[in-house]
């Protein structure tokens, strides 16, 4: 099976860093649909940076990243971000002045999805991640951390992307909620054939992964 996402000798160093001071060097990873991948590592190992590269938020790197065999540096990154890849942030990154459903509808609008009843679709997505209709109407600030994370997942699913990237998705959650969220990811990968990439340092998350890539400090590749 052809990997949906492939990293070939990817290296990264900060703009103001010394010439040989890389965050990571020569990473070559492959990611397939229907599986859960975990990128683990301690703080400062470059997990979130790697996630930024994969999601097309950072363009300044060495090596190649391929999405469906297309060089990521040559594709429209706005379109890539709003149709092919769903990003879930540790701090959820929801628009606080909007309700849960409005956040999802906005994402659909940006993607110009031709869905007749976007509100119904948003509610359906929220139900998929375990939130009922009453949650849909609430402003996101009035939701708990776990609920906000679910909304973020639902938003990332709104345009049915093939890859879902989650940055420390359970970092701010209690154990029970963490379990529930991980179940959602499992379901997405194994039942809905998504490629789920989770960046974390949590061992619990690593346990449920199909494959774990570990980033170590001091710029060494694993």
């Amino acid at each position: 099976m052809e990997p949906i996402l492939r990293l070939e000798n990817v290296s990264y160093r900060y703009k103001d860093a010394a010439k040989d001071e890389y965050v990571f060097q020569d990473l070559s990873y492959e990611f397939n649909e229907g599986k859960i991948y975990v990128i683990k590592g301690k703080s400062g190992s470059g997990k979130t940076t790697l996630l930024s590269l994969i999601s097309g938020l950072e363009k300044r790197y060495k090596g190649k990243i391929y999405y469906n065999d297309k060089d990521l540096s040559k594709v429209n990154l706005d379109k890539y971000r709003n149709s092919d890849i769903g990003i879930i942030f540790q701090s959820y990154n929801l628009l606080v002045h909007l309700s849960a459903s409005e956040n999802i509808i906005l994402s659909m609008d940006i993607n110009k999805l031709k869905i007749k009843n976007k509100k119904a679709k948003a509610i359906e997505l929220l139900k998929q991640v375990g939130l009922d209709e009453s949650h849909a109407k609430r402003r996101v600030l009035k939701l708990s951390g776990g609920e906000q994370q679910r909304v973020a997942i639902a938003r990332s699913l709104s345009y049915n992307p093939k890859i879902i990237i989650a940055d420390e998705p359970t970092g701010n959650l209690d154990k029970d909620t963490e379990k529930e969220i991980l179940e959602i990811f499992k379901k997405l990968a194994h039942e809905e054939n998504k490629c789920v990439i989770i960046v974390t340092h949590s061992e619990n998350v690593c346990k449920m992964a199909d494959k774990v890539y570990e980033l170590k400090k001091n710029n060494k590749k694993v």
Binding site: S55, L57, D78, K79, R81, N82, S83, I87, F89, N93, L94, L95, L106, S107, I110, N111, R155
Partner: peptide, 10 residues
């Protein structure tokens, strides 16, 4: 807000 909007592809 700008960051979020840009991140989700606006």
């Amino acid at each position: 807000e700008i960051g979020v909007l840009r991140t989700i592809g606006m």
